[in-house]
């Protein structure tokens, strides 16, 4: 089992940092290449949403990203301190269009649209909202025998 945890200042530039670290961790864990793209998109979406919320509601609070791989697969969690509702379930395109007002052309996307994108992207995506904190938990399956797992950090058990 491997565990990587990132605590990020809520700055847009660090979303990229998070993507790089999480994708590298996922590759090391053996996540299939076809799922790495999905993970990159989802992690970026979750972090963008969190950073955007923190900018408005909790600028000094960090965003936390954790990656864990174990027998059940790869689990990525993104936690923020912004308010959130359930993902919008209606017409996303309409929500996106409405989020840019005619008067100000404010392009800022409703963070709940981001949650809806996440649930659309990732088959196993769970969103927990408690006391003003939102945690997005996403899981992906890992192959039974991780690819290229060797060296420091890898776990091997042998019995003599």
């Amino acid at each position: 089992m491997a565990h990587v945890e990132l605590t990020l200042s809520a700055l847009p530039a660090h979303v990229r940092t998070a993507r790089l670290v999480v994708v590298a961790t996922a590759r090391r864990a053996g996540l299939d290449d076809s799922l790495v793209d999905e993970l990159r998109l989802a992690l970026g979406e979750a972090c963008s949403r969190a950073v955007g919320l923190h900018a408005k509601h909790a600028p000094t609070a960090p965003v936390t990203v954790t990656v864990t791989d174990d027998a059940t697969g790869l689990t990525v969690m993104v936690s923020d301190y912004g308010p959130a509702a359930e993902p919008t379930s209606g017409d996303l395109a309409r929500d996106l269009l409405d989020s840019a007002t005619d008067d100000e052309f404010d392009d800022v996307i409703d963070p709940d649209v981001a949650l809806a994108v996440l649930t659309g992207l990732v088959d196993d995506c769970q969103i927990d909202v408690t006391e003003g904190r939102t945690t997005v938990t996403m899981r992906w399956p890992l192959p039974a025998t991780p690819v290229g797992v060797s060296g420091p950090g890898a776990t091997s058990v042998s019995q003599v």
Binding site: G44, R49, L96, D106, D107, A114, V117
Partner: peptide, 17 residues
């Protein structure tokens, strides 16, 4: 290579403009 909903918002804003 990468697009998130922030980018979508910019494109939607451009469309409205």
């Amino acid at each position: 290579e990468f697009l998130d909903s922030t980018g979508l918002g910019v494109l939607v804003g451009g469309l409205k403009r």
